[in-house]
Amino acid sequence: MKKYFRISCLLLVTISNYWVWQIFSNNLILGVGLVITEFLLFSLIGNRQATKAKTSLKLGFVFVLLFIGAFFLRDRFDRTLTSLSPTEVSINNQRYVYLAESFGKYPLVKYIPHYYSTYSVYTRKYLTNVFYTLDPNLYFFRSHPREKAGIDETNKYPAVALPFFIAGVLIITIQYQKYKFTAIYAFVAALLSGLIDPGFKLGPVLMFPFVNIVIYLGLTESIRKAKDYLKI
């Protein structure tokens, strides 16, 4: 497949979703940063050149990612990650009693209740945010049927892009070595997104470049298969 055709496909994916317009209309700089990230990610997939060029790309990539991440962590950090609501405190206190009843009599495990009512709760809250960003329904169906209470989701991608997305995820999984950097990006973006307030109306925008790349991979592979099938 020719380079221009591949870039056209990526552009099509980038501009044909609702999310990009929401991001651009809300914050132009953020939108530009995300699109740059996406194209850097794309060039790392297709890059067959010398290692030096690849390293520069990766460095540029990390820089942009850090810039966007810092921007978010300053303004949109999820403050509930460092505090407990009265309901959480109440549940913790109760659980402390249950755990102490079960484990308290053994000297070596008496710290377990403490672990469960402190570190475990915070880790869980953080992971809730991380897995929220890994939910494909968030991107295609506004989290339906598992909407998060109190969060008004917006449409991000048309449902017609879903088959390409699924194909893309399978491609990355099966050819992990080839798309290692894309997978690492998704991992880092999900971890960073876990720190961002899930109520942020634009959603986990750090995943935007990744989702686009995944749809792009699925789309181009589908076109290739269709061409092979039709013998064009």
Partner: peptide, 12 residues
Amino acid sequence: TSQYLSVLSPRS
């Protein structure tokens, strides 16, 4: 589709 997708979701 949304129901089917939700059973594939890592979150779920």
